[in-house]
Write a protein that binds this DNA or RNA. Structure first.
Lengths: 146, 146
DNA sequence: GCGTAATATTTTGATATTCAAACAGTGAAG
DNA sequence: CTTCACTGTTTGAATATCAAAATATTACGC
């Protein structure tokens, strides 16, 4: 069906656009603290969920292992996180946020939340709940990222 | 309200994730033809909307002028589009798809549409319409990209 | 136990993107 | 006319990402 395809393509476009615009806007705040969105995502995840294997984090924030190494290196050099050697299985490296990293997240996160909330407020709470459901379905339906 | 912030943040995450996953999946097809998503977007836009100023295209697909130059250079070198000098106002450069470019898009576009449609089919038509509306609101609510 | 497959991380080279500065053309005010 | 501000494009340097290969460790079949 022609119309079905058009609708799907339209959805693809508005999805990409909304995501890009919102990511860019939220990045304005983050970059003031000399972080990029990936670095912030890693730190924030460690802050809220505790130490994690590098690879797990990569899966969650959709970054390949090579990129993870790059990001973790930078954050470790800045003293915002540290690598932990895992005696159980030496292939796996856990990373954990440092107190310096915690301070930074505590400084950024509230404003980050506010910023996102403001942007999302063009939708009502009910609409947001709905959007979450729909997007979750979309995101989960596709399996990739080896 | 704490809960409002959490909801907004959740939406932010599922939005980013869905977008990234779908872009990546759709890219599998496109990259087989030695294009990347930006290159495909430019060509596809020229194909369907006719010659356009470089800057207008950048606005539509959310690429800065520097990136546009880079992308257009590559496509022009491959003979898929051409720059047109605009006598009206020499600051502006129009680009237009070549017949070779048209052939390529004709080859890719149907499958691209099918691919996107399949991915989106985890949502019903009504859900897709709804998602389009919600995401359009989100995308339009923020003004950036100088 | 040994060799082989599987998993996690790092390294390396290539590429896409951005920003800021440089450049070119236009328009408008005096 | 000339200057000045503005717009659109290009250039160059910096950065983030990926893919593929290299490395290290573990698991498993025999």
């Amino acid at each position: 069906m022609e119309r079905d395809t058009d609708r799907a393509l339209k959805l693809f476009i508005v999805l990409s656009r909304a995501s890009k615009v919102i990511l860019e806007e939220s990045n304005r705040l983050i970059e003031k603290h000399n972080l990029n969105p990936s670095e912030f995502a890693v730190l924030e995840l460690l802050y809220h969920k505790g130490p994690q294997p590098i690879q797990k984090i990569g899966q969650k924030i959709l970054l390949r292992s090579g990129s993870m190494t790059y990001v973790v290196d930078k954050l470790e050099q800045r003293g915002l996180l540290q690598r932990l050697t895992n005696e159980e299985d030496k292939r796996i490296t856990f990373i954990s946020i440092t107190s310096e990293g915690k301070e930074l997240i505590q400084e950024i996160f509230p404003n980050h939340g506010k910023c996102i909330q403001e942007m999302m407020s063009v939708l009502t709470n009910e609409e947001q709940v709905l959007a979450i459901e729909l997007l979750k379905k979309l995101g989960l339906s596709i399996r990739n990222l080896s």
